[in-house]
Simulated scan of single mutants.
Amino acid sequence: MDTRALLTGLAATIDAHDWEGLPALLHPDFTCRLVHTGEVFDRDGWVRLNADYPGFDRMHVDDLVVEGDRGVLRARVTGTDGAGERLEFVVASFATERDGLLVELVEVWADVDQVPPEGTRPVA
C-alpha cells in the first residue's frame, strides 16, 4: 500500500473505532512519538492507547500531503470529557512508510480552543 492509501486508511480505521483492523496498517517495527508528552509507543501500545482513550468520538481528515514514503495528515478529533463536555483537538501526524506499512509516526496535538498568551498579538 502506498503512503497516501495508508494514511487515508489509518484515519478511516481510527474513525470507525476498528481497533482489531488497526495493526494491519502498522509495520512490526512501528513506533509513534507524541511530541507534547515525549512518550514513545510500539505497535501494540499505540493501538491500545487509541482503543482505550476515554471519550474519543470521531477523526476527520482536514489535509493530507504525501511525498514518496513520507506523509503528513492533519485531522480534527472530537470527543467528550468525563463531564460530557464536547472536546475538539487538532493533530498533525508525520508518517513514514516501509514495506507498504506505516513504520513511524510523530504526532503533534493541539487544543483548538486555546487562547493566545496575553501580549503576543498586536492590539487593534
Rank of each mutant, 00 (worst) to 15 (best):
M1E: 14
M1R: 15
D2C: 10
D2I: 06
D2N: 15
R4I: 04
T8H: 11
G9Y: 07
G9C: 10
A12R: 09
D15K: 01
D15E: 04
H17K: 08
H17R: 10
A24G: 09
L25P: 12
L26E: 05
P28K: 01
D29V: 01
D29P: 10
D29W: 02
F30T: 01
T31R: 14
V35E: 11
H36V: 11
T37G: 01
E39R: 08
D42V: 12
V47M: 04
V47C: 13
R48E: 08
L49W: 04
D52S: 10
F56L: 11
F56Y: 13
R58Q: 12
M59S: 11
M59R: 08
H60V: 06
V61Y: 07
V61G: 06
D62A: 07
D63N: 15
D63R: 14
L64I: 10
L64P: 07
V66P: 00
V66N: 05
E67F: 00
E67M: 01
G68Q: 03
D69H: 14
R70K: 01
L73G: 14
L73R: 12
A75R: 15
R76V: 01
T80E: 07
D81R: 03
E85Q: 09
E88V: 10
F89W: 15
V90E: 15
V90K: 14
F94E: 05
F94G: 01
E97A: 15
G100S: 07
L101V: 02
L102P: 07
L102D: 02
V103D: 02
E104M: 01
W109Q: 08
V112E: 10
V112H: 06
D113E: 14
D113C: 11
D113P: 12
V115P: 03
P117H: 14
P117Y: 15
E118V: 02
G119S: 10
P122W: 05
V123Q: 13
A124T: 13
A124Y: 13
